[in-house]
Nucleic acid binder design. Structure first.
Lengths: 255, 255
DNA sequence: TAGTGGTCTAGACCACATC
DNA sequence: ATGTGGTCTAGACCACTAA
């Protein structure tokens, strides 16, 4: 017994666009995302049970269930039978960072050692500003770091963040935090990454990069440009990684 | 009213492995996949309606629905409201090949011109045999081709196939077929690709490759090694692509 | 034992495509 | 008008977890 019938559209007269029918469970999804975004339920915490949410929204359990199913598929929520439904988090990653697809040719997928090179506040270059939706010249943070495995540097990352969202971020802060960087972003800055697009190319190592990754200049490297988004598809991080793929590969699944 | 209750396990005594509870809709999924695999419903065709399948399997529509939902998520089936549920196919791809993630830096995603270099039957090298699950030395087909956009070669593919599954495949046959190669595999050889894994690296162009792709020797190229599987997760194609990423990039989505 | 998510049913009604 | 998939409900029971 919903409060209102599925409400094919709002009370306002039909806009020229068309019918725009939205099923109940989609509306529930929006309400759930709003609660996630507002911080009512924090990463790692349990959300209310399906029955409780059904009561709150005055819909059946099945409708809430379908909404949660969708959000679980989108990796916003995690279901655990017998325990509850939890807000997904980057802070509890087991083996490796969730967004890092780099696998070693042999051996297990162990963690990688991090080494922060610098963390500077500067005006966002035009290209960065455009990607992050900043006005050109707005302040941004630029972090550079390397990732190591077996005593060899494998990844060089250059990370751009809108300064206004990450006030107080320093290289020390990054170095002393134990878990993945996206975990720190969640707990310290309330910014949760939920989706990303990557553009991958092969490039030649320039002088500076070659030295940092300990390869000959001109060596082929994998360039991975990642734009990460938070709730509402708002872009909040631009990251360019250069991967030495002589003993690692980028793994992808197609279906 | 199912024929049997969900049958926590088969009639046989419990194997040491454990309970192995399998819900009804999972069992329905297996039956549907079996029908797909046997060719009862061919790529592009409609499968029976949910109600009809529910009758056939003696379960409720909801249970069939959940099974089909799963298979649609796995891209084995495609739902079309008001029309029916159809067997997915590579033969009706609109813009581009479904498994090709290469995007132009600018301009629309147009089709690419194909040029077949050769198609030879030979013994599978050890590495290929291992990937395809062949005995070493078993016959295999090796196809090489290039893909062009705007009069420039962009992709060089080397494709390995088990010879026994693709009897009669020739370069002429490939050249005269209009649609994507996986479409030809479906219609002419009854082999449908449903899933693939890719290993991506940056490599330097060797002499022969450099000439075919019209780049200087040593240029960085994207190496994309793809292992494609058909029903039952059986590997049936090993493909190594070399992409010139100066005006294209490999696009990936993370979530 | 109680509470959670997971499965399954039966039936009603809606949106979409086709005739 | 008919048939398809899509949504929603109400209720029963099962599997898993934790106290």
């Amino acid at each position: 017994m919903p409060a209102d019938p599925p409400s094919t559209e709002s009370a306002s007269p039909a806009p020229a666009a068309g019918p725009a029918f939205s099923p109940l469970y989609q509306q529930i999804k929006l309400l759930l995302v709003k609660s996630l975004q507002s911080g009512e339920w924090k990463p790692g915490e349990a959300i209310p049970s399906e029955l409780e949410l059904a009561g709150r929204f005055r819909v059946s359990q099945g409708t809430v269930r379908k909404a949660i199913d969708d959000l679980a598929t989108e990796n916003l929520l995690v279901r655990r039978q017998g325990k509850g439904t939890f807000v997904a988090t980057h802070a509890e990653e087991q083996i490796q960072y969730r967004f890092l697809r780099l696998m070693p040719d042999d051996g297990p997928v162990t963690g990688m050692a991090r080494h922060f090179l610098d963390c500077r506040r500067m005006r966002a270059p035009a290209e960065v500003a455009r990607a992050l939706g900043l006005k050109s010249g707005e302040p941004a943070l630029m972090v550079r770091r390397t990732l190591w495995r077996n005593g060899q540097p494998v990844v060089l990352d250059e990370i751009w963040l809108p300064a206004h969202l990450f006030k107080g971020l320093t290289a020390e802060r990054l170095a002393q935090y134990a878990g993945p960087m996206y975990g720190l972003f969640e707990t310290e800055f309330g910014v949760r990454m939920i989706r990303a697009e990557e553009k991958i190319r092969a490039v030649a190592a320039d002088e500076a990069t070659a030295e940092l990754l300990q390869v000959p200049p001109g060596s082929p490297l994998l360039s991975v440009e990642r734009l990460s988004h938070t709730y509402g598809d708002k872009p909040v991080e631009l990251r360019r990684g250069l991967y030495n793929t002589t003993s690692h590969y980028y793994r992808n699944e197609l279906s």
